[in-house]
């Protein structure tokens, strides 16, 4: 069975757990003692991912690191309808743009959370300001999408772009970043929580 190297408090692992749940795919969790154990930096784990990061997905002989890459693979391989990663090149381009946003700009929110919760050494004012700047971009985008009658980041139904962006936006409070200013973002969070198969993680509640 497919295995996910997983840490319960990781928003990146949660991207994968959430997606596997909404597409109803069974898998086995391999808990990684990320904190306080630091297991992701041990020689054994570095054999699996030389970057020393989680999540990692193992499916038969395929070993994938990076949550965004894993989402692309899972949606292509296990979503028979291809609704989460449609084959339309234009939508794929837009999805790739937001996957990149999820793994770059939005990760400032993850940095703030690691600083505030687990003692990581980041410039907290700087990462919070960068997260706010990213959230404003997302909020402006979603505001205009709502005006156009659209509910999701890309296209007419939820895609892996929504799944990839969701965790560290919804977890931003953990890093002392308020979403009070981002109305369209909060409404989108509320819609993501209504996707059938939605699951929570600590810091994220059901509607």
């Amino acid at each position: 069975m497919m295995q996910l190297y997983d840490y319960v408090l990781s928003g990146s692992c949660y991207k994968v757990r959430l997606f596997l749940s909404v597409i109803g795919q069974d898998y086995e969790k391999v808990p990684v003692d990320y904190y306080p154990g630091g297991e992701h930096k041990t020689p054994t784990f570095l054999q699996i991912n030389p970057l020393g990061q989680i999540p990692v997905l193992v499916d038969d002989d395929l070993i994938l690191r990076d949550a965004q890459a894993i989402l692309v693979y899972l949606a292509g391989r296990y979503d028979a309808n291809r609704s989460w990663y449609p084959e339309d090149p234009r939508l794929q381009g837009e999805i790739a743009m937001w996957l990149s946003f999820a793994s770059n700009e939005i990760m400032n929110s993850s940095a703030a959370r690691l600083h505030d919760m687990l003692f990581y050494d980041f410039d907290i004012d700087k990462v919070r300001a960068a997260a706010h700047a990213a959230f404003r971009v997302l909020d402006d985008h979603l505001t205009d999408r709502e005006i156009m009658g659209k509910q999701w980041i890309v296209g007419n139904h939820p895609t892996i772009a929504d799944i990839a962006c969701f965790p560290y936006v919804a977890l931003s409070g953990d890093g002392g970043i308020s979403l009070d200013d981002y109305h369209a973002v909060r409404r989108w969070i509320s819609r993501v929580k209504q996707i059938p198969g939605f699951v929570v993680m600590p810091g994220i509640h059901h509607n």
Binding site: D144, I147, M148
Partner: peptide, 12 residues
């Protein structure tokens, strides 16, 4: 809809 989009862009 086009009016709202134009005004949204202006407001930004």
């Amino acid at each position: 809809q086009p009016l709202r989009l134009r005004v949204s862009a202006w407001a930004r």
